[in-house]
Design a protein around this nucleic acid. Sequence first.
DNA 1: CTATAAACAGACCTATAAGTCTGTTATCCT
DNA 2: AGGATAACAGACTTATAGGTCTGTTTATAG
Lengths: 204, 204
Amino acid sequence: MDKQLKRMATMQRIQTTGLEIFYQKGYHNTSIDDILKELSLSKGAFYYHFQSKEEYFISIVQNLLFRKVYSSLIEPIEGEEDPLNKIAACFDNALETAEHNFLDYGFVLSNFITEFNGKNPDIMNYLQDILKVWEVNLVTALQKGKTDGYVNRHIDSEAVATYLISSYIGIRTLMVEGNGKMLRYKYIQQLRNYFKLIEHKESV
Amino acid sequence: MDKQLKRMATMQRIQTTGLEIFYQKGYHNTSIDDILKELSLSKGAFYYHFQSKEEYFISIVQNLLFRKVYSSLIEPIEGEEDPLNKIAACFDNALETAEHNFLDYGFVLSNFITEFNGKNPDIMNYLQDILKVWEVNLVTALQKGKTDGYVNRHIDSEAVATYLISSYIGIRTLMVEGNGKMLRYKYIQQLRNYFKLIEHKESV
DNA sequence: CTATAAACAGACCTATAAGTCTGTTATCCT
DNA sequence: AGGATAACAGACTTATAGGTCTGTTTATAG
């Protein structure tokens, strides 16, 4: 195989498997050997490609984790239609995926935020950056919804975005207990309920 | 000092300090020595009172953690008045405490749930038990609110309780980033907004 | 007052995990 | 083809942390 390709392929493999295991067991509770065992690779290979466990993790956050959050929670809410419907559908879809996990480990991003808070400000910043992108996109979608006549002009878009993110983080944390189907149903029901206040009213 | 009292006092001290540090640094990232250093105690003292780190942590969860959650989130919502107002005031009060932490570490209970999920089913059960008590009490308060004419009879109390817990867990996770004051304001604003749909309507 | 057991001190053992280093295999360039 | 270097293997080093064990102090009972 071409050297450049081989290099990239190996790095990708190490990163992808790393994210999976970090997600399942947490960063501190996962050893480099755990990951290498899964890949049948050696310490030599790992430290040839990455300087340290931390630098390695940051590369995962900036690449794989960001893309994962973006494709599942941010990209789906872009578009011309009613943003409230798109958000509800997007959340429902994300929860459906979680529901079908045999053993669910929660929302990757918030898990890491919980784990690194107060311990590693550097990594925290990278994680908060992803949150920020999500929030900005939600606010943008809501504002556009106002001009397009889907969303009530009097609501505070930033507050709604914060409330949405909060509830999503929370329900994903709750879903780890196992009763995913029921929790998802209840959550989406109340989310749509909440949206009744947010959507545009014909009559003042 | 009396032996029994001394024993209890020492155990209490070890547990109290343990919860503080576990909360700040997480269970796996906290060593027994970290806690003992803070207390100027020795390994001998610790293992005289507790069998293992795990058994020790479980005793903290069942005693201190449960009481902490109960007194801050469950007890305040009991009473005869409008449950929605009590819940909002209770949440606001809890967030105010969090807001004034110099460095906030999130919601203790959900932090531990995130940390132990998929790793220690035993501890997970004890944590889930506390969540369950909270949920049951919220549902009870809402149901009582229906009979007392404060809460809309057509709402699904269990779904509302789930949604409330979700949003609270989420906002506490978000607040670790530091901008607590603003987040608290936004959250409570939207919570009260949400309650408009839940409260009893005079007109059908 | 003293024997006895509780309460505690701290050196020690052991396992784990991050990171290093030297040696080996695979790939590329000329 | 063959030297050079990238890519990887795996033994080794070092630090940390859970837990043990033996010895010492302190309090209570008789």
